[in-house]
Amino acid sequence: MSAAIRRLGPDDWQAFRDLRLAGLRREPDNFGAFHEEEADRPEAFWRDWTERATVVGAFGESDALLGLAGIYLLPGRRMRHKAQLFGMYVAEPARGQGLGRRLCEAAIAAAKALPGVTQVQAVVWIENRPACALYRSLGFLQWGLEPCGTRAADGTCCDNARLTLRFD
């Protein structure tokens, strides 16, 4: 499958919202938010994300959004050298074709282009083996394990791996 990777803009808010909500609904344990928390957010919330963060998307034929990954700069002068990878998701029909890797590479390239950024951080549910393997293959190193970093919808704990990819 050929897909174009590009940065989302404010006019892509509806496709961004729809795919993000689909990911939250289908794989709730892989995200730090619940579907219910974001489903009723206004248009301005979604537009704002595309303006204050770099959100890249994989667009297939007929301009359908197939995957997402985002980067935002951590706030504060002491943290500006770090960017956070967030929202990585590829729709199930588009998996197994390298889109996740291409999205991560585009997000990492966006982070490298930010002035002063020397590393990208990521948090991943330790049981999400495909994501863990992808991040390792991109050079991320696990520096910590957060017990019960997030809670699943049923209240059970999900341990999270803390990862970093350094550029310097």
Rank of each mutant, 00 (worst) to 15 (best):
C104P: 05
D18Q: 09
G70V: 04
C104D: 05
G100N: 00
G144V: 14
V124L: 06
I126L: 13
D11T: 12
A153E: 09
W46G: 00
E43Y: 11
A109S: 15
V56K: 02
E27C: 13
R17M: 05
G98V: 04
R47W: 13
D40C: 12
G70Y: 08
E43W: 06
G67Q: 09
G32H: 01
E37S: 05
L163C: 12
Y135P: 01
D63L: 08
I71F: 04
M1A: 13
N160R: 15
P10L: 04
W46H: 06
L68C: 12
G116C: 14
Y72T: 07
A15N: 03
F86L: 07
A109F: 11
R52I: 14
S137N: 11
V120I: 02
N30Q: 13
F59Q: 03
A33P: 03
R166F: 10
R20M: 00
G87E: 05
W143V: 08
L145F: 07
G70K: 01
F34I: 06
E61F: 08
A161Q: 05
L145C: 05
V55L: 10
P10H: 08
L21G: 03
Q14S: 15
R6P: 00
R80L: 12
G70R: 06
W143I: 09
D63K: 09
L85D: 05
R102V: 13
R101P: 05
F31H: 10
C158K: 10
L65D: 00
R20V: 00
L99F: 09
R41P: 04
R41Y: 11
N30S: 15
V55E: 01
A113R: 14
C104A: 15
W13S: 08
A69N: 07
L73W: 07
F140R: 02
C157Y: 08
R17Q: 07
K82F: 13
L145H: 11
E105I: 01
